[in-house]
Structure formats: C-alpha cells, structure tokens
Design a protein around this nucleic acid. Structure first.
Ligand SMILES: [Mn+2]
Ligand SMILES: [Mn+2]
Ligand SMILES: [Zn+2]
Ligand SMILES: [Zn+2]
Lengths: 141, 141
DNA sequence: GAGTAAATGCGAATAATTTGCAAAAGGCGG
DNA sequence: CCGCCTTTTGCAAATTATTCGCATTTACTC
C-alpha cells in the first residue's frame, strides 16, 4: 500500500471525512521532500487543476497536526511549515550556515529523558524544537 | 560594572546611539528572568512612566538581535520572545501554550554531549536552539 | 437515494509585525 | 554650551499570516 493510502486511511480511522481537498493536501505533502507552507500547498494544488481555498488548506493542516499525522516546523520567519509524520520518528537537524545544507541529528533530547527529569513540575509536554547550527566538514576549513 | 552598563556600552561601541528608549528596553530585559515579547516590554516600560512606542520596541529588538546582543526564542506561540545573550551561559525554556509563561529548563542537550557524539562528522557547532512547548500545571487542568 | 453532520468557500476579521514620513534627539566638532 | 548632521522616534497606515462566521456543499450511513 502506498504512503498516500496510509494517510488516507488514517484520516478515516479517526472518524474524519476523506474529502478531495484533504487528499490533495496529503498528496502534496507526500510528494514533497521538504516542509511546505500553507501557501505552498495552496499553489501546488491549484496548479494541478484542483480548486481549493486557502482557509481549507489551513484547516486541513490543523486537522493533520491535531491527529498527529503532521508536524509544524520552521516557524523562524513568522510562517509555519508542515511535514508529515512518517512512521513514528521525528528528526532534529544540524544546519550548516556555510552551504545551507541540513543533516539529521542522531538523538532527540526529549526522548532521552523522563518528563519529571525534564520539567520541574507536572507540566504537559506537547512538542519541542531542537536544532544545532554551525559549519559542516566542507565549510569548516 | 553592572550588566546593564555592559549592554549600554555594546550599543555605543557598535556606532549606535544610546537613546532613552533603547536603555528602557535593555533595562527591562536585564531585569526579567524570562524571555519577553515586544508587547511585554512595551507595557513594562509604560508602567515605569517612560513613554515608548510599540514600533520602537520592535525596532530596538531587531537592532539588539542584529548586533548579537539578544536572541529571539519561542516562536511556536505565534509571537516572538526576546532574551539577552549574557556572558557565555544561555538557558533553554519551556513555553506554556496556555498562559504564555516560560520556565527555565534544567539542562542543555548540547553541553551534555561531546561534539563527536552529537554530530557524525567533524562539524563545527556555533549555536543551537532547544525549546519545549506544552502546558504548565495551572493550564493543564 | 435521502438524511445528517461535517467540511468547504467566501469574505471579513484578527493579531503580530513592519513601514513611510515628518518631527525629535544623540553625539560630534567648534 | 551651541549648532549641525544623521540616526532614531512616534504615529498612523499597511502588510502578512492565519482565523472565523455563516451559508452552501459534500461524504458517509442507512
Ligand atoms: Mn525530538
Ligand atoms: Mn544549550
Ligand atoms: Zn556546509
Ligand atoms: Zn500556563
């Protein structure tokens, strides 16, 4: 079964309706190698000839995030980007300030700790961000 | 020399003018134990009787960040928070999505690891960002 | 195929942040 | 201390991403 269909089924298994717009947004994200903004998705879908409203894109993305199927990332410049959660693993990255490439980090600081250890009181953790910046081997010299 | 004066001097040494507004924003951030939003700063300054415009607060914060004197953090909450870069020690924070408060995290994932362990190759690490989001005790229930 | 609740489209509303421009103020030399 | 020049500020309006209300359409169940 294709990745796409796995997401389609996840939508239905949560009691949500599998609409043409939701399919289009998922297809877009499945096809993309990098996180996309709501507007990116809106334009991609339009280009494929399917009509979709920007508000619907936003609502669909919210739905995906709330369902645990997607993640919001890269809010650095006052704009959210979205990426599908494939499998169960999310990644953290090293960003090279020289060449702009990014590399996966081999660990997640949150997974390695218990919540009590991490936060003094009984807080609820919903997400986290961990990014390392610097220069890769090529750009260090 | 006080922390405050160190920042005042840093402003001047960069050829920037030390205005009453810039002093007020710096004082505010020096006095605060947690990152502040532009509006937080605007209100604090007003309360001290000094007039300041919100646009000026934003411009001052931009200036501080561009000069390497401050850092923008906590952007997942659809709003930027600012914290001064003090000496060489930095902190990481837990941001409550309910009330907007933030709390210091007791550990830094980078300090706890060697560079080789952290990054596969011989990369140079210059900075990092680590933030946890969720709900504090009051906002969890 | 009809009924019903959920989802969409549309336009208007928000909220944070930015910008243009005239007026005010910092820091320099005198 | 004075004036000059440039930077910075205040103000109001603009921008931008995102959200909302509501009428209409659609997916799914029976
Ligand atoms: Mn992680
Ligand atoms: Mn750290
Ligand atoms: Zn590089
Ligand atoms: Zn809270």
């Amino acid at each position: 079964m294709s990745v796409r269909n796995i997401f389609y089924r996840s939508i239905k298994s949560r009691g949500l309706r599998l609409t043409a717009q939701r399919k289009a947004v998922i297809d877009c994200l499945v096809a993309s190698k990098k996180p996309l903004s709501a507007e990116d998705i809106y334009l991609h879908v339009q280009r494929r000839g399917l009509g979709i409203n920007l508000a619907t894109v936003y609502r669909t993305l919210d739905t995906l995030v709330e369902s645990g199927l997607a993640e919001r990332v890269g809010m650095e410049l006052h704009r959210a980007y979205y990426t599908l959660c494939r499998g169960r693993k999310h990644l953290h990255h090293f960003f090279c300030k020289g060449c702009g490439n990014s590399y996966d980090l081999p660990h997640c600081p949150v997974k390695e700790r218990t919540t009590e250890d991490l936060i003094p009181e009984a807080f609820t953790v919903t997400s986290h961000r961990y990014e390392v910046y610097g220069y890769c081997g090529k750009c260090s010299s």
